[in-house]
Structures are given as structure tokens and as C-alpha cells.
Design a protein around this nucleic acid. Structure first.
Lengths: 241, 241
DNA sequence: ATTGGAGTATTGTTCAACAATCCTGTGATG
DNA sequence: CATCACAGGATTGTTGAACAATACTCCAAT
């Protein structure tokens, strides 16, 4: 009897202990966070032009939330540099300049290159995410979905940074890429900006999968140089106003 | 007459244009930001124990601010990972674990090592900040100010990351170091933890000042290895409860 | 063309209220 | 004895209104 009871208890314990610790799946979110998510998607999709003003009263009425809740959301996005908060003047959609693009690429180099070079220590899962993003991008290209190509490119570089296995790097990378995507909306309609880079993404992934981490890093570095130059050029050419 | 008028006008214009664009000096801060600054310093100085709960009502009464303002401050510090916000339960001072220390060092390596290696491109001002931090630390040691040594060490590594000349790296570094400092308060009183590293800081700076960037990076890497191991060890040894 | 000033609109902050959720202690039940 | 149910109290989540402080606009005056 004692034995049966004990086995039952330990069995239950093992069962529960074996569960994956209740991740963020059932994490209830506050209204402010949901509003922030909504605003963020609008911003990076270009629905809100860079520099546009976000009126507390009008947005609050639109989303059916109070000003206080809206202000909490503003704080969140301000910390991600998607909104800029000017005291007593209001919040505006950030308007990145060429110097921001340069800085963003500096950060990307600092995070993504070490991530690739540490590829040997990366989990198979993290590596698989890179491959999945490559195919996601190619599928988007096949159906001419330019928006999808951009999304896939973001996923790709997030996955690359994810090779580090660092929660903080993941979070930082997420922000950087969102900001970078906002930067695109500043320059003149670059619908198929990312398309030429899909093959390069594939090449880097193949090197990664083959264990050639240093060559992959070199390829990635070259990509950074080319993409940054093209972006900065688009910015300075477009610098009227 | 026309000429005189024109010169006067252009002179005024040049004078104003020459001014340094009004930096953050006269940037008025909101109450929420001031509260956040106050809380941050309390957290970093260990006045609030990791894991402690921050009651909205009591803190609001203490600081004489409304709950809404306090909540805005909580959001700011939550984004910096100094506070953790559990929905419907409240906010708590973050309680970093060994895995956080490992992650923090991953990020530090990613940011500080490239910064040192790019030292050739760094401004003289940024380099001077590193030297100033070294001397600040040595002065603190001379008068037995252990708290001051810790502060100087933070300033030192912020200055090192500052060699990149990247605003985003500066901001990220500021957060990482604040979080790291919080981690110290978790382990058993390490008053003179930083003291042994002062000479190493000096050595790295001397290499930097001499233009030996790669050797400086190697020294820094070694410092990371030693410091991380010591910290993680202190954590795992102290992992009861 | 620039300066001053009144009036309006918007943000900053507080306060009070209520709903939703969590925590605690108590008793019932097997 | 362990577990569960449940009521009561405490805390957070969110709203709405109010007022102060600041910025913006427009017009008059020089």
C-alpha cells in the first residue's frame, strides 16, 4: 500500500515535472501590450507614416482604450525606438535617418556575426529555424509576395541571431529589425529591395548547414556591406525634406 | 546699407547655426522618468532586494505620485529587465540567475570586443573616457570606496563599448551593466569583487592608448572568461533557495 | 518681418471608482 | 491528515473625469 501510494505520487510528480514549464502560451497580456502590438504592426507595415503624430485622444477613441492605457503602450514602443516621445508635445512615429541605418548595421554586425561563428554550439532547432526562413522567403518570391519577402528576411536574420541562444540577443535583434523595417518606409518605395538577397541567404544557410561557419560569416559580412551601402545610398539620394 | 543689413543677418544666422543643436541638457523629464531613475538607483545600490515586491499603493504614497505615473515608471524599468511584471500579481525586483549572468556576458562579448577591435576608428574623446574611468576606479580604491570601485567599473565598460560610437550600443550596454550589477546583490556580499580587475582595466587601456587594439581585445576576452567563471561559481555555490 | 499676447488644443498628472484577479484562512470532506 | 471548496479581503487592471502646465495658432501692433 505504501509502495503503491508512493509510486503514484512520484509518477504524478515526474509527469508534472516533465511538462515544459508553461511558457508564454497562456501568458495573459495586458490591454496596453495588445495595443502596443497593434501599433507596432501598423508602424512596420507602413500604415502610419514616419513622423506622423499619434494623438492620445483620437487613438484612444479609435481603439476604445483610455488615455492611460494608451500612454503605457506608447512607453513600450518608445523603448523600442519605433515611437519618439517629445515632452509636452506628443508621440510621433520615428523617422530614422541615414545615421540610424549605419548604427543599426553596426549592431547587426556585432550580434549576427558572432552568432554565425558560434554556429557549432547552436542547437539543431535554431539551425532549422534559419533554413525554414530561407524557404519561407523563396516561397514568398514564388508567389510574388513582396511584403512576404520582407517578413521572411526579418525572420531569417532573427533566426541567425538566434544561433547564439541568447534571450537578450533575440530581444535586441527583434527590435533592431523592426526599426530597420521602419527605415524602409522612409525611402522611396523599395518593393523588391530584399529579393536580390534571397539567394545570398540561401548560400549562407547552406554553408552553415555544412558546418562551414567561418565562410558563412564572411558571406554574411559581405551581405552587410552591400546592403548597408545600398540602403544608405537610397537614403541620401532621398534626402529632401 | 543693404550690405550692412545683409551681413548682420547672415552673421546672426551663422552664429545660431554654429550652436550645438541643443542636446539633452535642457530636456525636461517627466515625473515617471524621474521616478524610474530613483527606483533604478535604489535597485542597483541594493536598497531593494531582488525578488522584493513593489506595491503600487505603498510606493505611490511614498513617492507622492499617482498609481498611473508609478505604473509608467514600472514599464520603463521592466523593459530594462530590472523589474519583472507578472500580470495581475504585481512587479518585483528582478532576481537574475546563473543563466542570466552567462547571457549577460555573451552580450558583453558581442558588444565590447568589436568595440575594442574598432578602436582605430574611435574618437579621441571616447578613448579619453576609458582612461578617465580607469583613474576613477584607482582613486576609489585609494580611499577604500568599494561602492565607488563598482561604479567606476561600470563606467569603464560603458566607455569601452562607447568606442563603437553607436548610440544603440551605448544604451544596450547601460542596461546590461545595470542588470549585471543587480546580479551582484544576489550572491553573498562581494564587496571587493571588482578590486582585482582594476589593474587589468588599466592594462587594457594602456594597450588601447598605444594603438595595440588586437592585444587589448585578447586581454579583454581573458577578463571576460575569468570574471564570468568567478561570478557563475559564486552563483551556483550560493544556489540554495 | 518680427514681436506680444489672448485663446484654444494637447499633454502631464492626479484622483476616484469599479471589475478582475489573486491570496488567505476556514471549514467540510474523503 | 491531505485535499478541496469557498467566502472575504487585498491588489492589480482599466476607465473616465478633472485640472494644471505647456505648446500651438492666429491676430494685432510696431
Amino acid at each position: 500500500m505504501q509502495k503503491e501510494r508512493e509510486t503514484r505520487v512520484t509518477a504524478t510528480g515526474d509527469w508534472i515535472d516533465g511538462l515544459p514549464e508553461a511558457g508564454d502560451e497562456l501568458e495573459r497580456s495586458s490591454t496596453a501590450e495588445r495595443v502596443a502590438d497593434l501599433l507596432r504592426s501598423h508602424i512596420i507595415n507602413g500604415a502610419m507614416a514616419p513622423g506622423a503624430r499619434l494623438s492620445e485622444e483620437r487613438l484612444g477613441r479609435k481603439f476604445r482604450v483610455s488615455r492611460n492605457t494608451l500612454r503605457e503602450a506608447f512607453r513600450l514602443l518608445g523603448h523600442e525606438r519605433l515611437l519618439v516621445h517629445e515632452f509636452n508635445r506628443g508621440v510621433f512615429v520615428a523617422k530614422p535617418g541615414a545615421e540610424d541605418v549605419v548604427d543599426l548595421f553596426r549592431m547587426r554586425r556585432a550580434l549576427e556575426l558572432p552568432a554565425v561563428r558560434s554556429g557549432a554550439r547552436a542547437s539543431a532547432e535554431a539551425l532549422g529555424a534559419v533554413g525554414a526562413a530561407v524557404e519561407q522567403g523563396e516561397a514568398a518570391r514564388a508567389r510574388g509576395d513582396w511584403e512576404g519577402i520582407g517578413t521572411a528576411n526579418m525572420a531569417y536574420h532573427r533566426a541567425v541571431a538566434g544561433l547564439l541562444g541568447s534571450p537578450r540577443a533575440d530581444e535586441t535583434m527583434r527590435q533592431l529589425l523592426a526599426e530597420l523595417r521602419l527605415a524602409f518606409h522612409v525611402m522611396a518605395a523599395p518593393r523588391d529591395f530584399y529579393a536580390p538577397y534571397l539567394d545570398r541567404n540561401r548560400a549562407i544557410y547552406d554553408l552553415l548547414a555544412a558546418g562551414a561557419f567561418e565562410p558563412a560569416a564572411q558571406e554574411l559580412e559581405e551581405y552587410f556591406d552591400v546592403a548597408e551601402r545600398q540602403l544608405v545610398q537610397a537614403f541620401t539620394a532621398d534626402s529632401r525634406g
